[in-house]
């Protein structure tokens, strides 16, 4: 139930709804719980609702941190 995965918004629809792409499959989800999401944004979708937007800069920073840790380890 909690295994929400990142999905890309491909289209905004009426009434807080949007179409997202999840693993190549299109799905209709609600944007009622997030403000300011646009086409192209990645969101965490949980039981049919976007709960949070994914921040690309933060994601890159985290990946860089992994790489630094891995490189520094003996």
């Amino acid at each position: 139930m909690c295994l929400a995965i990142p999905a890309r918004v491909t289209q905004l629809s009426d009434g807080d709804m949007a179409v997202v792409e999840l693993d190549g499959v299109s799905k209709s989800v609600s944007l009622a719980l997030v403000d300011g999401v646009g086409v192209g944004d990645y969101v965490i979708v949980h039981t049919g609702y976007a709960l949070s937007r994914l921040d690309e800069d933060e994601a890159k920073r985290t990946l860089q941190l992994f790489a630094d840790m891995a490189a520094a380890a003996p």
Partner: peptide, 13 residues
């Protein structure tokens, strides 16, 4: 998990 989580969380929710 800074790419999805903030200090305040989702205030609207």
């Amino acid at each position: 998990y800074t790419r999805a989580v903030s200090f305040d969380g989702n205030l609207k929710a």
